[in-house]
């Protein structure tokens, strides 16, 4: 009975980090546990938390939407690989505005979040939306109160398209928001937007889908207004050069292409190169290999974009080359 208890204790892998991919990781974990009996415990505490925890070795893997640069990876002895891609979507709560009805240009988005435009009936918004009836209602910006890779992707985009944003705020997992209230996690932002009349926030697309929220259409680099769909995220990801990016560091915001969603991002897994427990390391990598091979349908059902096969092969090659226990390779 003791060995059985020990055996049970070993089939638990732990991870922490981004709330962005939490819906799909939870789905994969549930299906994987049903199939193999190995349980995954994932804490969605935010990308910053995930990075801190994996560096402190309190979890088996970390998850982040904000990829680490090669220097930081080498310093911490980590490898990083992309798991899924998804889109960050502006969501709003204005009575009379239906999902997908409102069109927002890059400048408009930046001006709203920086606090320059404070009312929904502002002429700048009406100019882009002549056919939408906008009420005289104050705009309440909702952002993240915790450190977040979703924020990193969102501010990365605003930083690229607005010189004002670049000068005043910048891009990071947590920034000094010029205006608005903060919700904890994607869940918190979704809750606030749904409860405050006239609110606008940004969430990972799965959250807007699951909570049936009102999203807006964004204008991409090619000038077209696109809806956030799996096809739009895939179009944005098509140009990514994964092979030549050290540590798979690729940023997918503001990508060219007439169908591309402008705020797309990949979410990454962080893993230590040097593993003390070879069987545990193998169990973790087995989960991710299973997710790559079998998790595509669930990911697409939640409007995430699974990684293309050539990238999966590159990632598994990295596991083979880099993950070691005392000099011996863990993954074959």
């Amino acid at each position: 009975m003791l060995t059985a208890a020990l055996g049970f204790a070993q089939t638990l892998i732990s991870g922490a980090g981004a709330t962005f991919p939490y819906p799909v990781y939870a789905k994969w974990a549930a299906d994987y546990a049903k199939e193999t009996g190995v349980n995954l415990n994932y804490q969605s505490i935010g990308s910053g938390g995930g990075i801190a925890q994996i560096k402190a070795k309190t979890v088996d893997f970390g998850a982040t939407d904000a990829p680490l640069r090669e220097g930081e990876l080498n310093e911490a002895g980590l490898i990083q690989w992309p798991m899924v891609m998804g889109g960050v979507v502006p969501v709003l709560n204005v009575s009379g505005v239906k999902p997908g009805a409102l069109k927002i240009t890059p400048t408009l988005l930046a001006d709203i979040f920086i606090g320059k435009i404070t009312n929904w009936n502002a002429p700048e918004i009406a100019a882009v939306n002549p056919d939408v009836k906008l009420p005289d209602l104050g705009i309440t910006v909702v952002h993240r109160s915790d450190g977040s890779g979703t924020t990193w992707i969102f501010t990365n985009y605003l930083d690229k398209v607005s010189a004002d944003w670049h000068a005043k705020v910048g891009t990071d997992k947590a920034v000094a928001w010029p205006t608005g209230v903060g919700g904890k996690g994607n869940e918190g932002v979704a809750a606030y937007v749904q409860r405050i009349d006239g609110a606008i926030g940004y969430v990972e697309y799965a959250y807007s889908l699951q909570n049936k929220m009102t999203y807006a259409r964004l204008q991409n680099r090619a000038g077209k207004f696109v809806e956030p769909t799996s096809g739009a995220f895939q179009a944005a990801a098509a140009n990514a050069d994964w092979k030549n990016a050290p540590g798979f560091y690729v940023v997918l915001t503001d990508q060219p292409g007439k169908d591309s969603w402008p705020i797309t991002g990949a979410t990454f897994i962080l893993f230590h190169k040097e593993q003390s427990d070879a069987s545990k390391a193998k169990a973790v990598l087995k989960f991710f290999a299973w997710s790559y091979a079998n998790g595509g349908t669930q990911a697409e059902a939640l409007d995430y974009v699974p990684m293309p096969k050539n990238v999966v092969d590159l990632v598994q090659a990295t596991w083979r080359e880099q993950v070691r226990t005392g000099g011996k390779a863990v993954w074959e």
């Binding site: 915790d146 450190g147 977040s148 947590a174 903060g182």
Partner: peptide, 30 residues
């Protein structure tokens, strides 16, 4: 409370307390 790092005079405005700031930001302050 709204988790907003600004000093506002209005009772209707959002703000933050020391405890709420610690709860929100401690785990990821790198």
């Amino acid at each position: 409370i709204g988790n907003d790092h600004r000093l506002a005079a209005s009772l209707f405005a959002s703000g933050n307390t020391i405890s709420s700031t610690l709860a929100n930001e401690f785990t990821e302050a790198s």
